[in-house]
Simulated scan of single mutants.
Amino acid sequence: MLGVILWSNAVSRQAVIWCEDHGPLAYLAGRVGTAVTGAWPGEGSLVEVETITDGGVRRVIRLTPVGREISLAPRLLRECDDAEPERPFFPTE
């Protein structure tokens, strides 16, 4: 199933992932079962995951990045900073 990384830590090799089935968030700890060959995937990365429930926690047992690293969160933040704020609309009679 597809997922989007919400939080990631490259040093500890951990991530929290939202999954397309809208179930509980999935947790990834370590490289076991990952097909990550380059940089550790960051927030906003699209990934394909396989999960299991272990002790009431949804854990990722297989993770494969989908496409290239897009770093969506930083890009969206930059675009928001660059955007001109909208003026409020006040209807007149």
Rank of each mutant, 00 (worst) to 15 (best):
G3A: 12
V4P: 01
L6Y: 11
S8K: 05
N9P: 02
A10Q: 05
V11W: 01
V11G: 06
S12K: 13
S12V: 13
S12D: 11
R13V: 08
R13I: 04
Q14R: 13
Q14A: 10
A15S: 10
A15P: 04
A15D: 12
E20M: 08
D21N: 14
H22A: 14
H22G: 11
P24N: 12
P24S: 10
P24K: 13
L25K: 15
L25S: 15
A26C: 06
Y27S: 10
Y27N: 08
Y27P: 00
L28E: 06
A29S: 14
A29D: 13
A29E: 13
A29R: 15
G30H: 01
R31W: 09
R31N: 14
R31H: 06
V32N: 08
V32W: 09
G33D: 04
T37Y: 08
T37Q: 10
T37S: 07
G38V: 00
A39E: 08
P41L: 03
G42L: 02
E43S: 13
E43K: 10
G44T: 05
G44N: 07
S45V: 12
S45D: 15
S45Q: 11
S45A: 15
V47H: 03
E48P: 01
E48K: 07
V49L: 04
E50P: 01
E50Q: 14
T51R: 02
T51Y: 03
T51M: 01
T51Q: 01
I52K: 05
I52S: 03
I52F: 04
T53I: 14
T53M: 06
T53N: 03
D54G: 02
D54H: 09
D54Q: 12
D54R: 04
G55H: 02
G56F: 07
V57C: 02
V57F: 05
R58N: 11
V60D: 00
I61W: 03
R62S: 07
R62E: 09
R62G: 02
L63M: 14
L63I: 14
V66W: 06
G67D: 07
G67T: 12
R68T: 09
R68C: 01
E69S: 06
S71Y: 04
S71T: 03
A73Y: 11
P74R: 02
P74E: 08
R75Y: 09
R75A: 15
R75I: 10
L76Q: 09
L76T: 13
L76A: 11
R78C: 07
R78Y: 09
R78E: 15
R78T: 10
E79L: 13
E79F: 09
C80R: 05
D81L: 11
D81Q: 04
D81W: 03
D82T: 04
D82I: 04
A83R: 15
A83C: 05
E84S: 15
P85K: 11
P85Q: 06
E86V: 11
F89G: 01
F90Y: 15
P91M: 07
T92G: 02
T92D: 03
T92A: 11
E93W: 15
